[in-house]
Design a protein around this nucleic acid. Structure first.
Lengths: 337, 337
DNA sequence: GATGGTTGCTAAAGCGCTTTAGTCATGGAA
DNA sequence: TTCCATGACTAAAGCGCTTTAGCAACCATC
């Protein structure tokens, strides 16, 4: 049999199409008895909503959008992203909501996508990440009233619901740990300078360095690639005096940096301590294994999903993501001097 | 201004709505002069198709579906999957086609999803992977005429378009390489036994072992997790005589296996050679780095995207994916005896 | 000069659903 | 008794697009 429509249900239940719509959407306008009967018939006929028809008449789409302006190739390499997407999808699917993925060239194309999606009622909401200082997406989304959840915190900027990740506290945690071991010259291999979280981490290092009287604390930005991670490490380790510890903004860069250190004849952690700002199988399985700031990225994705679903229903305000935990492994130890 | 509809364009261009539709879809029914004029007006008014409206009237959706019945958590860990999805998305987006991701409980739910999508005209086609022997999805998709592309080859089973990956040749390549080094006792830590590609790899090892007179060739299936990879490795290395080489069906398991070997006091590659069937940053960055069968998974995703787009237009038949290349690194060498 | 076939276009139905305006009992208050 | 609210429901419009049927004008044909 062909897909049953609400018309079929209406006929079978002996009511009008409108009544069926009310019943199925839990809205006022039908008595409880009728509602129950309609639902029973719908169930029995195996009815499912037709998403396009719903979208066309302006109702919910049961679809969330995720668009990324990072280069597609690097996305596949980032365990963080893959984990996040999995968690997000898992969190959405408990409510039968789908995830639409899109990779675009640049942030303008991203904004343009939001505009199109909004006017075509294509998604119920979007998830934003990799926020930048003065991000054009924020303005667009606030203006257009497309529900959005910002991952990483929209901070002072915005009224958008967000999942707030406390990068500052996380960086402080790392620096305090290293300082307690006796490290003074701490280097930081950061990510893309335009990202807000990069800036927050850099500021956190600067502040805690001055507070703890660490003389040689420096941050260097990169594009998150293992190549740049390796190159910056090479430059840092050529300095005299050498840093005794390096903090990497991603696990991939940390692993690359470890490779460089070993290649340069340094032993880890005796000559150099290494900390990764992100954890993953990669960090866990290296030899020496990497001390890393570990968070459950999958769970973070689920949290974003939850926040998104309530944002669609009009909720606002932020949620604090759990503070990541510093997992001490083999790559950190007392400095030699 | 509100989103322009084809009605607005029609009014402005002084033609009927139908004419506009013909013009925008490149169909017969309007003269070239009129078509050009309509397109100009549309462009000028910033018109974009309304996907829901299109889908509702049975036309193309510009959306491809990818549903996975693997546990969500493991998906985030697999570099293969992330790379594939990125490549797929990149390949689709050149034609403005989106990707809808869905993670479901089991294969029945997956089939059910295809059925719903088909009847709601939700996607133009779907991508299938992790094919099993006697896969129920094949039957459903052939019956329902939902365009589908099978990754990994639909083999003799099916009429579906596919991107064929030659696991047999790949395994032969590895075994020949190891045999040439002088290895006889080759163990194979395989993936899930129900997957077709697992079965093909196991058969390939068995065949080539008998052909090359390798006495101790064995395959053991796992669930692809690093835990099981480690456990099986432990069991294999406890055997006497020990295998001199182990082939792992995924990079994650290979890394786990390497960890076990080192933990047991073996040196790689002197006491044990290790080959991974999949390459990734992980394999490249380990110490020792892993010899691996390397393919450009991102490009594979793009190839799948291309095949999908032509399948939507009615094309059929398979494409052979490029043969992966064996990248020899530090984890393989001559056996000690 | 009537016939038939194109070509270029319009009108209108229809896709499945939501939503607004309206109808008709029923019940309680005046 | 009359009047107005309220509750339960129906009818129908409308979302933006595709597609079929139809129509008029034009050309070539015998």
């Amino acid at each position: 049999m062909a897909r049953p429509t609400i018309g079929d249900i209406a006929a079978r239940a002996g009511v009008s199409i409108g009544a069926v719509s009310f019943a199925l959407n839990g809205r006022a306008g039908v008595s409880e008895a009728t509602r129950a009967r309609i639902l029973r018939v719908a169930e029995q006929m195996g009815w499912h909503p037709h998403s396009a028809a719903r979208a066309l008449s302006g109702a919910k789409t049961d679809m969330i959008g995720l668009v990324s302006a990072r280069p597609a190739r690097t996305l596949g390499v980032e365990p963080f992203f893959a984990q996040l997407v999995s968690g997000l999808q898992a969190g959405l699917s408990v409510q039968g909501v789908g995830l639409q993925l899109l990779i675009v060239e640049d942030i303008e194309a991203e904004v343009e996508t939001y505009r199109k999606w909004r006017s075509a009622n294509h998604v119920d909401g979007v998830v934003l990440f990799d926020l930048r200082a003065d991000d054009p997406r924020i303005a667009e989304l606030e203006r257009s009233k497309l529900p959005a959840v910002v991952l990483g915190g929209a901070g002072p900027l915005a009224s958008l619901p967000n999942v707030w990740v406390d990068d500052r506290a996380a960086m402080l945690r790392i620096v305090e740990y290293l300082a307690a071991l006796g490290h003074h010259r701490i280097a930081h291999v950061a990510g893309l300078p335009e990202f807000w979280h990069t800036q927050r981490r850099i500021a956190a290092l600067r502040d805690s360095a001055s507070e703890l009287d660490l003389v040689g604390a420096t941050s260097t930005t990169t594009d998150f690639s293992d190549e740049q991670g390796a190159e910056v490490t090479r430059r840092l380790l050529a300095r005299r005096p050498r840093p005794t510890a390096i903090v990497y903004d991603s696990d991939v860069m940390a692993v690359a940096g470890l490779g460089v250190a070993i290649e340069m004849g340094l032993s880890v952690p005796q000559d150099l301590s290494i900390v990764a700002f992100d954890d993953s199988v990669l960090a866990r399985m290296m030899h020496p294994s990497l001390t890393a700031l570990s968070r459950d990225t999958f769970a973070l994705g689920e949290l974003v999903a939850e926040t998104m679903l309530s944002a669609v229903d009009g909720a606002t305000g932020g949620v604090q993501a759990p503070m990541p935990e510093l997992v001490v492994r083999e790559s950190t130890g007392l400095p030699r001097d």
